[in-house]
């Protein structure tokens, strides 16, 4: 059985009585170097796992904050090659697991097996795939096994019990529990649905399940970690980067990390 570094980090945090904080930032925003520095700053300020987003032209799961950032990165000339480069550079500077979040078409075009091989050599831990369901993922299941990569599938409030089970059985690292029926972006209250998704995932046998979508404050992180194994924050960090650069990302990450105490 493969040991997922992502799962080990989550397990360590849970055993310590809390849970993991996972922070999202896109590659290439506002430019490649700054995005690398910002991801490093996340880890240096209490984030446990980096979720590095690859900009894509048609990001249907993303709200305006992330859309604007990834569109700017694309206009700035982002390429997949830079994505792998960013993974390598971040991993050489901090010892924390790094998952790449990507829509599926770029992976298909790069070649699923080649993508997995290059992600492994760059030091990436695996993929979060917002528009790939396990039903369509045969090629990725094979490639991720061959390269010991995590594969994070999503579970939603609308998922049937059978689909919850499928998400749990297909995922490695953690299952991404979508907190609400919607897209990424800060929300004032993280849906009560999140708690229910987690408990249904537990019933389906999940030992590692994290909540994402809408989380933007340390209070929300603390609240989510009372029932989930990890809390994922995205748009709040991207806004900070857009408004105040790396120092602002560092400050927000540190603030969010107080939610783990």
């Amino acid at each position: 059985m493969t040991t997922s570094p992502v799962e080990s980090v989550i397990r360590t945090r849970v055993d310590a009585g809390s849970g993991a904080l996972i922070g999202y930032l896109p590659v290439g925003f506002p430019d490649l170097d700054t995005s690398v520095d910002a991801a490093v700053a996340l880890i240096e300020n209490g984030v446990d796992i980096v979720e590095l987003g690859l900009p894509y032209s048609d990001p249907v799961m993303d709200g305006l904050v992330i859309q604007r950032a990834t569109q700017a990165a694309l206009q700035g000339g982002f390429t997949l090659k830079q994505g792998f480069e960013a993974v390598e550079r971040i991993r050489s500077r901090v010892d924390a697991p790094l998952l790449v979040m990507t829509y599926w078409n770029p992976v298909i075009q790069y070649g699923v097996e080649r993508f997995a091989a290059d992600l492994e050599s760059a030091g990436g831990a695996g993929l979060i795939t917002p528009d790939l369901i396990p039903d369509e993922a045969a090629e990725w299941l094979t490639a991720s096994d061959a390269h010991d990569l995590d594969r994070v599938f999503l579970a939603a409030p609308s998922s049937s019990p059978a689909r919850m089970t499928q998400a749990v059985e297909s995922s490695r690292g953690f299952v991404y529990a979508v907190s609400t029926m919607g897209i990424t972006g800060a929300r004032s209250d993280v849906d009560a649905a999140a708690r229910s998704v987690i408990s249904r995932l537990r019933e389906a046998g999940a030992t590692s399940a994290c909540v994402g979508l809408g989380i933007s404050t340390p209070e929300q992180v603390a609240d989510v970690l009372t029932y989930a194994d990890g809390a994922i924050v995205g748009s709040r960090l991207v806004s900070a980067l857009a408004d105040g650069g790396v120092p602002a990302v560092a400050a927000i990450a540190a603030e969010l990390a107080t939610g783990k105490d």
């Binding site: 599926w104 528009d131 790939l132 369509e136 409030p157």
Partner: peptide, 11 residues
């Protein structure tokens, strides 16, 4: 096929 977010599968 169906290459969409899980949230839409039930619908």
């Amino acid at each position: 096929g169906r290459f969409v977010p899980e949230s839409l599968i039930a619908a």
